[in-house]
Design a protein around this nucleic acid. Structure first.
Length: 507
RNA sequence: GCCCCGUUCGUCUAGAGGCCUAGGACAUCAGGUUUUCAUCCUGAAGAUCAGGGGUUCGAAUCCCCUACGGGGUACCA
């Protein structure tokens, strides 16, 4: 049975790197008929940010990604918040302690700093708390059993550290990177149990939960690769080699410019979303924009993220979520970081916008239309016609207004450069003649208007550009927009004629 | 500093020893279509495959070194 988990910390909004990790987990699980579990890793109470968990859940709801288990949906392996699993972990620390695979340490933060300072001064090859340094520290390896008991009974604060034997080769088999071997001397005696809040650290909690929740594959970001050997060691120490999950460490998402891991600030700095949803920091009240609010379709976001580090080997770039589930494979995940490309993302959104139904686009556009005052109420059918005429020119729904406002509101200013280029002394006469002609016309369908204008131009021996460009100027105010007969048909006779007369008198 | 991972057009990438005079997409530029703009179509430019050594008849692909980039190095996850 394939079971994977997405295990974020509730320390703020989830960024798109995390979303991608979740997506890859999801594709992999669903492809194999497995389960996709949400687990909240909140063992660091000091970094807890209220609203994070709700944010995470809402984000995936928007994306249309469903968890099979999690704090919000329940499941047979709960609870799904580590803070609610305290009792579960203690047993295993005690077991490691009893087996001599872990030990108590009483060093204060100041003492640890002093140790590192001393090692640095000595130009020691490493500054770690490990086999080379632990015997100089205050821990149960250097104290008598009685003294340890005395301190413990006296309620002295302690941490539990894993005891790593030097000079062993620890091998991590990674589904994406192959075999990664590390000498255990390079690992430090990581804290497994914290004194400050009486909770395990990520490392221990993670291993215990993955075991208890029967996780078969751990698919996570590359930032975990350096601690993967520690995790492998923990599986051995606890005698859980038989159920050790398979690991896959994903490449990171990088800053679009410069170097480094993509971070919160990049979005605001570069003007693109780093988060699925808008987020307001509860403390600073600072707001960061989200894909949803920026007008991205959730399917487009999934598609964009899926292709940042994976492809199916063909030239296909547009994938539905079902296709992704069907085609995703870990061995086609790239090994190097990827930079987010705003322009290509906009293109993806354009593709999804074109695929969207006119009805849906009209629904989405309506609020933007109402946001602009003094807009005439068109019939729904007319609105849909307008959307169909302009949708290919925009990447986002909110851009539709910029491409369609002239349907609703007559131009008040006329593009100077076009006036200069096209408006000749004869223009007012020509256009007035045309307006007079239109005024007598009863059939204002697009087809008939096409015929009328071409006939008008032919019979008077004008040329196309001479008439049409100036007519466009009258109706639109600029050299843009769909075919004029479509525009005239939609705004109607009175409005068309009036716009021509107004322009003739003002230009 | 030390450890780990990586490195193909500006960006995302294809590439599993000969199919590579390195393919596609976005962006850029040019031409065409169009009454305008956009779409669309065609084309161009753009990567001596980070550099250097090997291995091989043959290397973008395998090995080594160097450089560069990223990650890690907390009682954070």
């Amino acid at each position: 049975m394939i079971r994977v988990r997405f295990a974020p910390s509730p320390t703020g909004p989830l960024h798109i790197g995390g979303v991608r990790t979740a997506l890859y987990n999801y594709f992999f699980a669903k492809q194999n008929g497995g389960d996709f579990v949400l687990r909240i890793e909140d063992t660091d109470s000091s970094r807890f940010v209220p609203g994070s968990e709700e944010y995470i859940i809402e984000s995936f709801k928007w994306l249309g990604i469903k968890f099979d288990e999690g704090p919000h949906v329940g499941g047979n392996y709960g609870p799904y918040r580590q803070s609610e699993r305290r009792e579960i972990y203690r047993k295993y620390v005690d077991e490691l302690l009893a087996k001599g695979l872990a030990y108590y340490a009483f060093d204060t933060p100041e003492e640890l700093d002093a140790m590192r300072a001393r090692l640095e001064a000595e130009k020691a090859p490493s500054l770690q708390y490990d086999s080379s340094t632990r015997l100089a520290m205050r821990n149960s390896l250097t104290m008598s059993r009685d003294e340890v008991k005395f301190r413990l009974d006296g309620g002295e604060q302690y941490v539990v550290r894993i005891k790593i034997e030097p000079n062993q080769t620890v091998v991590v088999n990674d589904l994406i990177r192959g075999e990664v071997a590390v000498n255990s001397s390079l690992l430090d005696d990581k804290v497994l149990w914290k004194s400050v809040d009486g909770l395990p650290t990520y490392h221990l909690a993670n291993i215990v939960d993955d075991r208890k929740m029967k996780i078969s594959h751990v698919i996570r970001g590359e930032e975990w690769l350096p601690s993967a050997p520690l995790h492998v060691l923990l599986y051995h120490y606890l005698g859980w080699e038989d159920t050790m999950p398979k690991f896959a460490h994903l490449p990171l998402l990088l800053k679009p410019d410069g170097n480094g891991k993509l971070s919160k600030r990049d979005g605001d700095r570069l003007g693109f979303p780093v988060f699925p949803l808008e987020w307001t920091d509860p403390k600073t009240l600072e707001t960061s924009c989200g894909f949803r609010e920026m007008g991205y379709f959730s399917e487009a976001v999934i598609n964009i993220l899926a292709l940042l580090g994976w492809n199916d080997g063909t030239e296909q770039e547009i994938f539905s979520i079902n296709e992704l589930i069907e085609k995703f494979s870990l061995d086609r995940v790239s090994k190097h970081g990827a930079k987010f490309d705003v322009q290509k993302s906009a293109w993806f959104n354009h593709q999804y916008l074109l695929k969207s139904s006119t009805e849906m686009l009209t629904d989405l556009f309506t609020p933007f239309m109402h946001a602009n005052a003094a807009v005439p109420i068109f019939e729904r059918k007319t609105l849909e016609k307008i959307i169909d005429l302009v949708k290919e020119r925009v990447n986002f729904v909110h851009e539709i207004w910029g491409q369609s406002h002239f349907f609703f509101i007559a131009p008040t200013i006329y593009d100077e450069t076009v006036v200069k280029k096209r408006w000749t002394p004869e223009t007012p006469d020509i256009l007035t003649k045309f307006a007079d002609l239109l005024e007598k016309e009863s059939d204002f369908s697009s087809e008939n208007l096409e015929k009328i204008t071409t006939d008008f131009i032919k019979t008077n021996n004008y040329n196309m550009g001479q008439v049409m460009n100036c007519l466009r100027l009258c109706l639109v105010g600029a050299a843009m927009g769909p075919h004029l007969n479509d525009i005239m048909a939609i705004i109607g006779k009175n409005e068309t004629v009036q716009r021509i007369r107004t322009a003739v008198s003002t230009i």
